[in-house]
Design a protein around this nucleic acid. Structure first.
Length: 335
DNA sequence: AGCCAGGACGGAT
DNA sequence: ATCCGTCCTGGC
């Protein structure tokens, strides 16, 4: 608890809707909604066959959803929606579209498999293990930029701490099936904060100034997600890097994740080593060498190929282990 | 006690 | 275009 945070309020949720979003097989529910490489956050909780996730809608309304496989998991997601008040039609349509984008339901996964079908190492390994996995990004462009900011220049553990404090300070706490989750930080709340609050209260250090710049950019409409989505890749990157604190790495994370460009690969130190090992058999190739070899081998799909390789590697030792079934009820009893 | 980590900036070359 | 010192914090 930071000295700046207010009383801890938990927003009461009621079931308001149920949305079914379909996709063409192959679809892998588990690995589409849960990525073994992602560090655990207060935004989501995973039990394997059941997954919980929060979203903040464009209207600002925080919601939480309970996801289960649709039609036995072959081809979609059933989402039970919980919110503080009834849904409007526009909010329902927005969330439905957001879910399709968040879990890659409109992505032509077969085109990827066909394009790399001659790559036996990829097909026989990562693709076989993760068959049907879609690239996912439940975050908005603003949210993914904030997350990439706390990922900068530190360890995953520290990143998780910074994000947790941000969510507790600027997000909305909600209880769903006995578990506390947070909707992402409200952009206006963040833009209205002081640098001191971010620096000293949230312990963001030099990132405080950058976070304000990013939040103000989105709050004032200087950068707009819908507009960036329509730009060509190179222009979109320049547009994002106009924000102080957003460099090549963060811009790549945003473009490959939020915009779901299957050819963009974000090479942080660890990903570079993992891909270098897959491509060259040793971890020491430069970022440039890795990108060039990946482009030659997975023309047009190097980002998605990299995702499969990385997630397959984390599968045995996940950064975010699946929670035990029933532990939510257990926690609830202790309250 | 000092060094560095899952980048970015600003300025110098 | 590329290189370097600096930035907060926490962990070793």
């Amino acid at each position: 608890m930071t000295p700046f945070s207010g009383p801890h309020r938990i927003i009461h949720l009621s079931p308001v809707d149920e949305i079914e979003v379909e996709t063409k097989p192959p679809f892998n529910f588990l690995y589409s909604v849960w990525k073994p490489s992602h560090f655990p956050t207060l935004l989501e909780r995973h039990f394997g066959e059941v997954a919980y996730r929060t979203f903040r809608l464009k209207s600002g309304l925080p919601v939480a959803i309970r996801m289960t496989p649709l039609h036995g998991g072959c081809c979609g997601i059933r989402a039970q929606v919980f919110a503080p008040r009834p849904f409007t039609g526009a909010e329902r349509a927005y969330l439905s579209a957001r879910l399709r984008l968040a879990y890659g339901l409109d992505f032509p996964i077969k085109a990827f498999y066909e394009a790399v079908s001659s790559d036996r190492a990829l097909v026989g390994g990562p693709i076989a293990s993760l068959y049907g996995m879609r690239a996912s990004c439940p975050e908005t462009l603003f949210e993914i930029l904030v997350i990439s900011l706390v990922l900068q220049n530190t360890t995953a553990k520290r990143s998780g701490q910074m994000l947790a404090v941000l969510l507790e300070t600027f997000g909305d706490s909600m209880l769903i099936d006995g578990q506390e989750l947070y909707a992402f930080c409200d952009v206006n709340r963040l833009a209205a904060s002081s640098e001191r609050e971010l620096r000293e209260g949230c312990r963001l250090g030099y990132r405080a100034r950058y976070l304000q710049a990013i939040a103000e950019g989105f709050a004032r409409g200087v950068v707009d997600e819908d507009r960036v989505r329509r730009l060509p890749e190179a222009e979109a990157k320049v547009e994002l890097m106009r924000l102080k604190g957003v460099g090549p790495y963060s811009a790549h994370v945003a473009l490959s994740s939020a915009l779901q460009n299957p050819n963009l690969v974000s090479l942080d130190v660890w990903n570079r080593k993992i891909l270098s090992r897959f491509l060259f058999g040793h971890p020491d190739a430069s970022a440039r060498e890795v990108v060039e070899a990946a482009e030659a081998r997975w023309n047009g799909f190097k980002g998605l190929a990299a995702l499969y390789i990385i997630e397959d590697l984390y599968r045995e030792t996940p950064a975010s282990p699946l929670a035990e079934a029933g532990s939510a009820a257990g926690e609830e009893r202790h309250r």
